[in-house]
Design a protein around this nucleic acid. Structure first.
Lengths: 235, 235
DNA sequence: GGAATAGTGTCTCTGAGACAGTATAGT
DNA sequence: ACTATACTGTCTCAGAGACACTATTCC
């Protein structure tokens, strides 16, 4: 291969897939694009990485600038997308990040955050006439959801969808929304409370709802839950 | 942020962590660097991505060019490394790939492949005075091994370490080498033969070794093995 | 009391692990 | 025969799932 001046030149961007569970369903944070290409279409918050900026810092910055979501409890690199024709402006490689946040009510903007909002993931991934996204963000969303679904089995990721203190029912709601299944409340309760390091009791109880008040828990220190929760269906 | 001319300029490279099991231990394919920076040190095969080249194609090309390893049965993106100071030549982002190949004997070179060889992974990851690698390749190797160890539990990845036809003992050897544990041959045999779609019988048997000849198997179509094999220790 | 949700008890079945026992090869 | 490895049988124990039952709140 021959290049006129040294090595091929790339632009590097980050895109952040920020997920939450609201109204009992998995939702994703999207912005309406304000400029070309894909003007007016929905896309993940993201943008170009600075010359001296770390990738993860760039992801955090773009999430804050474009959506006003600050310091999600979970942020990790998802995958890098670099098809030569993925951006009409030129050769661009995008490092996608997966972020998870608890239900924080409406995404209301600072500055450019005006057009940021939460959308039901299912609308983009349904097999019949899925809603469209800019760039290759449809593929990225699929990968993000697949990883999230898998992670729930053997990591405490589900707790990062909950507020700092949550009930077992809250946690079960996260699993049910993301896996799209119904779980037996009794067995789920026993299982998660017995998985060592997964949850820690606060002593406090919930209030307000109908029925008996529930114990409030905080997430534990375990990085891995054992034995795992099993989702038999293929992920 | 302000840039004098458009967007920040990056170089994009790929690095391939190619793993195999030889002599009962996990080994990795490395090349001795022929030029600056890190001249003479060990590094993963890799290099710059072409202007119109897909990332995975670049990984495959570099692996072939530098080590003569063609078409590993497993190649998937691992993670992207982009610390601003990771390459003294300038701002470079490297997309790391994880490849798995069966034991193919010595890595003998074509062209630049002269210096390519297999090395015991343990030497680089031991806590006391680990052997050094160029760039941030030590971190990349750690991530590659962690993912591999985890994948063995619930995916058929272990079969890609074996030749197309293999015995249950071969497969067990892969788990034992990578997990660093001893597995009960009887229980392992029952477990993997009962996991649906994991293995398919060929009808043929092995020959040559001491003891009763073993059935030869080929890898099945399953993308996921259920129930998973469990590694209790933290990964 | 009735409705609703939280949480416990208990039974059954499956699978993991320990390990004895059988099968089939080389020497 | 002896050894080595492949494979099967069997026992025990832990955990998943089904579901009955108790506990505690609001109405």
């Amino acid at each position: 291969m021959v290049y006129t001046s040294g090595y091929p030149i790339f632009s590097v961007t980050v895109d952040v897939v920020c997920l939450t569970v609201r109204d009992g369903e998995l939702q994703v944070l999207l912005v309406e694009r304000g400029g070309e290409p894909f003007e007016g279409e929905l896309a993940f918050p993201g943008g170009f990485v600075g010359v001296n900026e770390d990738l993860e810092d760039a992801a955090r910055r773009e999430l804050l600038e474009e959506t006003n979501v600050d310091a999600p409890p979970f942020l990790e690199q998802l995958k890098t997308y670099g098809q030569p024709d993925r951006d009409p402006r030129g050769r661009t490689v995008s490092v996608a990040y997966l972020a998870v946040a608890p239900d924080m009510g409406d995404a209301r903007g600072g500055s450019d955050a005006a057009a940021a909002d939460w959308y039901a993931v299912a609308d983009f991934l349904r097999p019949r006439r899925p809603r469209s996204l800019a760039f290759d963000h449809h593929e990225i969303l699929r990968d993000a959801v697949r990883r999230t679904r898998g992670r729930l089995e053997y990591s405490p990721l589900a707790t990062t969808f909950c507020r700092p203190e949550f009930t077992i029912a809250d946690l079960r709601g996260v699993y049910e929304a993301i896996w799209g299944v119904r779980l037996d409340p009794a067995n789920f309760h026993r299982k998660v409370t017995k998985a060592e390091g997964f949850l820690v009791e606060t002593g406090r109880t919930s209030e307000g709802g109908p029925g008996r008040p529930a114990q409030l828990y905080r997430r534990g220190r375990a990085e891995r839950i054992y034995p795992p929760l099993n989702l038999e269906q293929s992920v």
